[in-house]
């Protein structure tokens, strides 16, 4: 079976409020589902690898072919609950080690 290539995305959550990892992932899945539907969402292979609530920083793992889909979906997140929010991609990398080097976190 062909090995699935993956990418790691370092994210900055830009908001005055702080959110739990569940709320954050609900918002991410909600955005992916709204834009691409359940079939599209199943192709993204979304997994939350790390989440630092206080630093507003998260790391997601996605399928290599779905990076642009996830980027677009993340860009459409404007609210979590009733709090305005923007999610920015800080870096994309093929390994967690390289991602840490790029972001310095």
């Amino acid at each position: 079976m062909k090995r699935v290539r993956r990418r790691y995305l370092a994210l900055e959550i830009d908001s005055e409020a702080v959110f739990s990892s569940t709320d954050f992932m609900d918002a991410v899945y909600g955005a992916v589902l709204k834009l691409y539907g359940e079939y599209g969402a199943s192709q993204t292979g979304l997994v939350l690898i790390g989440y630092e609530m206080e630093q507003c920083f998260a790391v997601l793992r996605v399928a290599h072919v779905a990076v642009e889909m996830v980027r677009a979906a993340l860009a459409t997140i404007t609210r979590i609950g009733d709090k305005p929010v923007a999610v920015h991609v800080l870096a994309v990398s093929g390994t967690l080690k390289a991602l840490r080097t790029k972001t310095g976190k």
Binding site: M69, R71, A72, A75, H88, V89
Partner: peptide
Amino acid sequence: SDEKLMRKPAELASLASLFNLNQ
């Protein structure tokens, strides 16, 4: 007009994939 709706250039480019514009 709202800061929270501002996105990075690469994110704007990703949104363009929604209307079939290549990268």
